[in-house]
Design a protein around this nucleic acid. Structure first.
Lengths: 200, 200, 200, 200
DNA sequence: AATGAATGAGAGTTCATTCAT
DNA sequence: TATGAATGAACTCTCATTCAT
């Protein structure tokens, strides 16, 4: 007698669930390395070491597994950032810790980072959803920082977008392209810009 | 008697040159609207109102015309920004004017903006080249602003990336997604962040 | 202690037999609605509310269950026609009652009617078998009608085929396509043609 | 300088037109022999001795070439019947000649006959269209025969359907199944039934 | 220079069937 | 007996590229 799992109205046995996981992990690898359009289902099933047809027992289409990856890891990232921010001593520290957590996540999930960027082309709605979701976390922390009198009274949404932008570009530049941690001095320079501004 | 043109070791007649132009303009439209992978050569030749085979008289591959677009318009964008910055009364104003010019360019070249983002998937090297090229302009102006004592002494490259990031995200958010100008108050908020920082 | 049933050298328990029945009923529905080629085994097992693999415990292939349906319901139709004909007061009446019974059967077994037509594509031999079997009934009654001096001396096989043809087309036209009974006046016109001919 | 042809908004050169013809002839053969669902595009292109992809230069889908065959040959058949009927000395003779022409057509176009029957499964609308189109010819001739006082006053539509039914079944039985002409005595028996009726 | 017919590799997807549990 | 995961061959369709005219 085997235990069953139910996901989105589909029922899986333990074995089925494991196959699904294998496919997701394989897709992360393949989409990350080759890009959505260059990647084929065969690439994914070979990476997962299952038969071609097995893919369609678990995902109705190539696009669907892509969506699933984005949505699943968006949640993972947000939780990771949130967890880190909770440890902060003040709101500035919270923002710094948020950035650190983000860079860390990119480092550990290089493929996922790439996949998210691909969404710009593959599904703009999804890409927008991704950043809107992410923005909410920044917004909340900014808002509290303002209320606490730690931050200036600002257009929170705009600033949230600016902060995400900076995180995104530095992550791309250093962690994704150069495959290293964001250097300390770069991180400090960015934080300095954010908290003190450019003008002398 | 026809005049000839030489581009990258190829010789064109006047008529040939015009056909090439038609194809580039069509490619901009088609790549912009459908995306690189969804677009086919036939789409481009139909848009250009030439025969299918004509394409390969001018470009060796689909990828090549994509590259050409990116490189050509990268130059156009940089010139547009430079031109605008020249009019500035000081370095802060130059940065502001640079942003304005960028948003303006996105507005007038929506398709191109989209195409550049597609490079993330199509050719990461090219994408990097694009932003490295762009960064140089920001860098130069920043550098002069520091030398003139108008800006803090900062890690110029990092700040250049941060500024590009902000421009990129706000352009995406407002001009590309919402299809409107960046609202004045959003622009001001971003500038305020950049020049004064977040801390109270 | 369970009772066993034996069908074509296979032994079934009561439960097994019921599963088999469920599959046949489901197949009738699915083949009827979607057609043989559009229908999948999964469609059938889902309709029957059994597991995918269960199908192959009862039928060796998709084709086999199709055959079984055709053969089973061919017998049912012939019995229905025969039963009705038995009530007739003379041979002309028998033919009329035979037609009525046929139209009635199409009405109540729309799916089956469709399935029989599919045999044209799926298995021409089977289709031929179906109509040869059906023809025998017509033949017998015609033959008796002639012997009784009620009908002309005719080429019985040809006339049997003509009668089947008329039944088939009127059934298709009215009962299957229009989903209604064959209108009385249509029925009468056809009978008039059959019994009196076209010439003035 | 090559001559061009325009068909349904597509332009063909002479060569292209010939390829299209080759494909139609091949499809007639393949659909006729294997049936619509068992036939693959590869079967057709191999029969036509062209590359796989060439098919899609001329027909947007498998279904489309099937439709084209049916519609094209429906017209051919109707013209053939009409031509033959024109030679008739009276309306009864016209009907006889119509049947003859039909059987002749089936004989020369065995594959087409099969293909038309497949439409029952592949596209019921098309099948209905086919017989509705055909019925019109019968109707017209019947109508004139009545007006001329040669035929009884009857429900013309119903009788038209009955006549088509008989033609269809005899064609199937003899020409298609047995691959021979409809025997003279069979033809005569059917005509006798049609014109004189069954009752003594 | 311009044309468009021809090509064939390769894509995503389906599904009858097998089989271990 | 019942299950549903796994398989892989076969399908339709796409399209970048080549090439004869």
């Amino acid at each position: 007698m085997s235990e069953k799992m139910i996901v989105e109205e589909k029922i899986f046995t333990q074995k089925g669930w494991e196959t699904r996981e294998k496919l997701l992990i394989a897709a992360e690898e393949v989409f990350g390395k080759k890009g959505y359009y260059e990647a084929s289902i065969v690439n994914i099933t070979q990476e997962a070491k299952v038969a071609h047809g097995t893919f369609y027992n678990y995902f109705p289409s190539k696009k669907e597994i892509f969506d699933e990856l984005i949505r699943y890891y968006n949640r993972e990232l947000r939780l990771a950032i949130k967890d880190e921010m909770k440890q902060a001593v003040n709101y500035e520290d919270a923002q710094r810790k948020g950035f650190k957590a983000f860079f860390n996540w990119v480092k550990n999930r290089r493929n996922l980072y790439s996949i998210v960027q691909q969404a710009i082309v593959v599904d703009q709605e999804l890409y927008r959803w991704y950043y809107d979701k992410l923005a909410i976390g920044f917004l909340k922390s900014l808002s509290e920082g303002i209320q606490a009198g730690e931050f200036k009274t600002i257009d929170q949404e705009t600033v949230a977008y600016c902060l995400m932008a900076i995180g995104q570009f530095l992550g791309m530049r250093w962690v994704y392209w150069e495959q290293q941690d964001v250097p300390e001095e770069v991180f400090d320079s960015a934080m300095k810009l954010i908290f003190e501004g450019l003008r002398k």
